[in-house]
């Protein structure tokens, strides 16, 4: 029999032989990317693969994930919606604004969003928040996974516009998309420094850890406004 342990709001650990990360399925009976569905005491959970989701890896790396049932989330770099689906599970009473620039990925994301009422898909460039500012309310969390060389700048621009004063920024930095040849550790140091000085008053870095062994050359960062 499986045992369920609550890690933090909406995030669970299911122990059934081995430990598995999971969220309550908001869209019962359906899987999104081939993950497993597990029934425990009448509640359906979807397992969450940390190797396919940077947010999932951050949970296992003991990041404090500031998400509640009614959180509003701005998700930059939504891609096909693998992680978005879990965020949507967690903020079942809230809203996920999922920004993605690639029409091909958006195709999959639309499929996901049409089944989940709290996901609002937006096809736009995350570097140009003006182009979607007419749609978005102030949010509790900005999650960013964009793999762009100017990710610190993108985070700053969106934070200024959309993050509540007491909100958080969760960021996944991919060293290889900033500099393919430099040493990842150096790149991380430089990016964290950039974040701290991105704008006035800047970010306060609460946590920064690499996401090994789930993702190579990736740094997870949790920050809030100074």
């Amino acid at each position: 029999m499986a045992e369920v342990k609550k890690l933090s709001g909406g995030i669970f650990e299911i122990i059934k032989g081995k430990k598995q990360l999971a969220t309550k399925n908001l869209d019962p009976g359906k899987t999104v990317y081939g993950e497993k569905l597990i029934q425990v005491e009448g509640i359906e959970y979807r397992t969450w693969d940390p190797r396919r989701s940077k947010l999932g890896a951050m949970v296992l790396k003991k990041f404090n994930i500031p998400l509640k049932e009614d959180s509003k989330v701005l998700y930059l770099g939504a891609a096909s919606g693998t992680t978005v689906s879990h965020v949507s599970d967690i903020v079942s009473e809230g809203a996920v604004y999922a920004v993605e620039f690639s029409p091909r990925s958006m195709r999959d994301l639309i499929g996901l969003a049409s089944r989940r009422k709290n996901v609002h898909p937006i096809l736009a460039d995350a570097g140009k928040p003006d182009s979607y500012s007419h749609l978005i309310e102030p949010v509790d969390l900005i999650f960013q996974d964009v793999a762009q060389p100017n990710q610190a700048e993108i985070a700053a621009r969106n934070t200024i516009r959309f993050l509540k004063k007491d909100g958080y920024l969760l960021l996944s930095i991919k060293a290889r998309s900033i500099d393919t040849v430099a040493n990842p550790k150096e790149v991380f140091k430089e990016e964290v420094r950039k974040l701290e000085k991105a704008f006035e008053p800047g970010f306060e870095i609460l946590n920064a850890k690499d996401l090994m062994p789930y993702h190579e050359d990736h740094l997870g960062v949790l920050a809030k406004l100074k």
Binding site: P103, I110, A113, H120, P121, I122, L123
Partner: peptide
């Protein structure tokens, strides 16, 4: 947002 994204795609 859903319909707008569909149109753009």
């Amino acid at each position: 947002t859903l319909e707008a994204a569909k149109l753009q795609v």
